[in-house]
């Protein structure tokens, strides 16, 4: 009797254990929640662009459709010959400047459909806060255009939106004049992304460690060494990376312009 009960319990537990193990043995993916952002009136374009970039690639789930190009137009790269979104946004709708257009098409996507794509994009105001929307606008402007979003924009829609939280101190006098968003750092990162440096090298949360990581590389190597290592990767192989020696293409000298090379070198040398 007891034995019988024990057997039953063991069969049940074994079955449950098997299923739990199987479900734990496969890749574990958690669905992300868009982070809530809150900016003051003195927010800088860089802050907005970087927050927008994270949203675009991550929790905003924009790349589910934009970038694949069969569900929605590409935004980061050229679409329809008019360049990336930052270049073409101002010309999309008569009488709307880039900023207005981008915000409006996030808030009311069906009214700004791009042929031949279907109406599948949800109203992003549902999913994202005003601050997040404006950071996306800033990020998209940054794709080939000039960032004109300021703290004042954030305040304006916040005040008008129904459930808007209390306005965040300050007032209209938003500044953030900086219009040259592509600092050396972002440009260097862009160049490195385009040349797939992060396929082997790690910097911050980008990339993988196959070759030496870039974090803090400026404190270990000087600019001359870095320059030489890019142009002539196999000249000197650092300790611990002998196994991957010869992996890095030796033709970056031909692939990079001198300006790009210098940008990368100076950027890396500044990583301390």
């Amino acid at each position: 009797m007891l034995l019988q009960n024990l057997k039953i319990v063991l069969v049940v537990l074994g079955t449950l254990g098997l299923y739990t193990w199987v479900a734990n043995a496969i890749p574990q993916v958690e669905s992300e929640v868009p982070a809530q952002l809150s900016f003051g009136a003195d927010v800088t374009p860089e802050e907005l662009v970087s927050a927008g970039g994270q949203l675009f690639a991550g929790a905003g789930a924009c790349v589910t459709c934009h970038g694949l190009e069969d569900r929605a137009p590409a935004l980061l790269s050229d679409y329809g010959g008019a360049g990336p979104i930052g270049q073409r946004c101002a010309d999309r709708v008569e009488g709307m400047d880039c900023k207005e257009y981008l915000y409006a098409s996030l808030a009311d996507p069906y009214s700004y459909l791009v042929e031949p794509f279907g109406p599948i994009m949800p109203d992003q105001r549902i999913n994202l806060s005003e601050d997040q929307l404006w950071s996306l606008v800033a990020y998209l402007q940054d794709q080939g255009g000039e960032v004109t979003v300021t703290g004042a924009d954030l305040q304006s829609t916040q005040a008008s939106s129904a459930g808007g939280a209390a306005s965040q101190g300050g007032g209209g006098a938003a500044t953030a004049a900086a219009s040259g968003p592509s600092s050396d750092a972002t440009e260097a990162t862009a160049v490195m992304q385009a040349n797939l440096c992060f396929g082997c090298h790690k910097l911050g949360d980008q990339g993988v460690v196959l070759g030496p990581p870039f974090d803090g590389i400026g404190s270990r190597r000087d600019a001359a060494y870095l320059r030489n290592s890019i142009l002539n990767p196999n000249a000197e192989v650092p300790e611990g990376y002998q196994e991957v020696a010869g992996l890095m293409p030796p033709n970056f000298g031909q692939m990079l312009t001198a300006g790009q090379l210098e940008t990368i070198v100076q950027f890396l040398a500044s990583q301390r």
Binding site: Y19, T20, A23, N24, Q28, V29, E30, S31, E32, V33
Partner: peptide, 12 residues
């Protein structure tokens, strides 16, 4: 956040 399958399987 919606949990990953492993966690869900434990709860189930």
């Amino acid at each position: 956040a919606t949990p990953a399958l492993g966690y869900a399987s434990v709860v189930i």
